[in-house]
């Protein structure tokens, strides 16, 4: 946090106006010799309570470079942003896509192989040549036990209840897309019907996870689409045990969040170094207590205390990257049609 550069993110900054000029001058002087690594990621990753600040500090301490984040929105919007900028993008690394998007991301031809076979602790085998995972988790609906004493025990039960939920847009947000595939994986041809039944439960659809979770915390909804690990944040950071993730009979959809190196990077060596650092202890160690997800390579000391209280799904659902890409457009059309009514 000691960088004098004007921060790329609004959220992590707390400097005051008079320091701008000074910061600007120093940054301009420093820029001449320091190589810059640009990482395109999602907004909550670089928020001041997210992993961004700690990761930046740790990586800059060893790389002799300036790590700059660009966080235009939630995960799925990253892909559209990449398509828009194409080979012109000045980003070196994209961090925050997930397996629902890697198929489409690979098809852009903008990524190059990482060329490594790191040791991972994932619930699935990993053999993607382009993308490396950095964390994972199960999607779940999170609720407040004091406000909703009995939570629904399945997607179908939720759809038939009058519990009010906030979800994310599958076109811009990875949790939103995850729910789309979750319903599809669990219900196949009946997915459209589930969405039709869910439509009257949905108070609003937000563009990203941050907005939805914020609405839930403000009391606008009974449940929010998030992760089984979200209650750990309230438990560990706020000592508040009132939040819980509802266990659903259909099983829970898995998310594996990944990063990849762009072919057009002007700092390929730095990008490799960053991907390597990403699976090291410093990066992975902050993931459970800042991004509130399971680390892709668990640190030797294990998970922080409090994680053992989290709900463990009985069944995991996950489509392959290829299947996810094939299913997406049809599932999205079903979703749009059901919710536009």
């Amino acid at each position: 946090m000691s960088s004098t550069q004007p921060r790329p993110s609004l959220l992590e900054d707390d400097m005051r106006f008079p320091t701008i000029a000074a910061g600007c001058l120093i940054a301009m002087a420093a820029q001449a010799e320091t190589p810059v690594l640009k990482v395109l990621t999602y907004d909550s990753f670089v928020s001041e309570w997210g992993p961004g600040p700690a990761v930046e500090q740790a990586f800059e301490a060893r790389c002799g470079c300036d790590l700059q984040w660009d966080a235009p929105g939630d995960g799925a919007a990253l892909l559209a942003r990449l398509k828009l900028e194409g080979a012109r993008s000045d980003a070196d690394v994209v961090l925050g896509l997930d397996t629902s998007l890697t198929g489409a991301a690979a098809a852009t031809g903008l990524f190059v192989p990482h060329g490594t076979t790191p040791k991972l602790d994932l619930p699935i085998a990993w053999d993607d040549p382009l993308f490396l995972p950095f964390d994972w988790g199960w999607f779940a609906f999170v609720y407040d036990k004091t406000r909703l004493p009995v939570a629904p025990d399945s997607l179908r039960a939720l759809a038939q209840s009058d519990v009010k939920i906030v979800i994310q847009d599958p076109r811009s947000s990875t949790p939103g897309l995850g729910l789309l595939l979750w319903v599809k994986a669990a219900y196949g041809d009946q997915a459209a019907q589930i969405w039709a039944d869910l439509a009257d439960n949905i108070i609003t659809v937000t563009p990203g996870w941050s907005e939805a979770y914020g609405l839930f915390l403000e009391g606008e909804a009974d449940m929010v689409l998030s992760y089984t690990t979200s209650p750990a944040y309230h438990l560990i950071a706020e000592e508040d045990a009132s939040k819980a993730a509802a266990a659903f009979d259909e099983g829970h959809y898995l998310q594996v969040e990944v990063a990849g190196k762009l072919a057009n990077s002007d700092q390929p060596a730095l990008a490799d170094q960053f991907l390597d650092f990403m699976l090291g202890a410093e990066f992975q160690g902050v993931i459970p207590v800042t991004n509130w997800m399971y680390p892709a390579a668990t640190a030797p000391e294990g998970l922080p205390k409090g994680y053992e209280t989290l709900m463990q799904p009985k069944k995991s659902l996950l489509m392959s990257a290829q299947d996810a890409m094939m299913v997406r457009d049809g599932a999205l059309a079903e979703w749009l049609t059901a919710l536009a009514r």
């Binding site: 004007p6 921060r7 959220l11 400097m15 320091t19």
Partner: peptide, 8 residues
């Protein structure tokens, strides 16, 4: 107390 990017 506004963060710097707001002033920019």
């Amino acid at each position: 107390d506004l963060p710097t990017p707001v002033w920019w």
